[in-house]
Design a protein around this nucleic acid. Structure first.
Lengths: 160, 160
DNA sequence: ACAAAAAATGAATAAATATTCAAATTAATG
DNA sequence: CATTAATTTGAATATTTATTCATTTTTTGT
């Protein structure tokens, strides 16, 4: 049988690496790793570790380790060689598409799109780090994505 | 009786000002303030507000309002207040929300929202006195309002 | 090493929280 | 308005989490 401290380290690791939303789930998860534990002991361990339960859009409420909770890692500044490295994300809502970019990149990227002027897009508006694309009616999202990838191949790797 | 959003604002305030460790306690607390609520509804409200339960050395586990973003925390309280004093109005149209601000305030407020990056919002664009928010599909207005209040508590007083 | 004390644990159970389902309220549509 | 659709809510209940209590394991002092 593992020691108490080893078990708690395993609990911490499990919470850091997976989204766990109940103690029973965590018990099963730990048992699969060869750690015998009951829900009662786990409840005590979680308190010892000061584990919190916080909201996660994907999975509802999940357990989180206090310190590691909201650390936003900064991307490295190295390797920005091309304009479209400024691309961060593409999302849709209704007949709009939104491109999130690195700060300052939005207007250059919008200009690039304007120059290419794909017929799927009837207009663009750029802020500092956001480009808004107004999509022509009746255009499918997949078609617009393909059209944008033609202009900015880097985008291909950033579609979720 | 009180509206749903008013009730949720009261819940938020209660959690911010007192250490509450159970929903039954919170129900009693709210009833003392003249707000009728059952545990079932409170449970749903807490989820809507993304309230977490975290360890507190003095009182064990208590409910906490999640922090909107790390950078927000670094700014001075006065700075945030000053900024969000620029807020004038919030209106909706379809999947868009428009914040009217005092002249010149829009981009700073947009930056504040971008930093917090709530998942309900897929992008923002700022003019001089107007911020356009593009809302993720399927998000309810009340949920977006709650999310924005997390970032700018001043907003709570400006909702009809 | 041995006995006594302290800490850890599991099973059962109490307490707290989430969900179901039916009713009530509110919003949308003609 | 009237009617239908959608959302909100409470009571009851299911699920999840914390605690009690008896027992086992570990630690301490001699």
């Amino acid at each position: 049988m593992k020691s108490r401290i080893e078990r708690q380290i395993a609990i911490r690791k499990a919470i850091l690496t997976e989204k766990v939303s109940s103690q029973d789930d965590l018990v099963r998860l730990l048992r699969n790793k060869g750690i015998e534990i009951t829900q009662a002991t786990l409840s005590r361990d979680l308190k010892t570790l000061k584990v919190a339960k916080a909201y996660d859009p994907a999975a509802g409420y999940i357990y989180v380790i206090p310190e590691a909770g909201n650390i936003v890692k900064e991307e490295t500044e190295a390797g920005i060689n091309y304009l479209t490295d400024g691309l961060r994300n593409l999302q849709f809502s209704g007949n709009l598409a939104v491109i999130n970019t690195r700060p300052g990149y939005a207007s250059s990227i919008a200009a690039l799109i304007d120059t290419a002027a794909p017929y799927e897009i009837i207009g663009t508006i750029a802020g500092d780090d956001t480009v808004l694309l107004i999509i022509k009616e009746g255009i499918k999202r997949a078609d617009l994505i393909n059209s944008l990838i033609l202009i900015m191949p880097k985008l291909a790797g950033k579609i979720k």
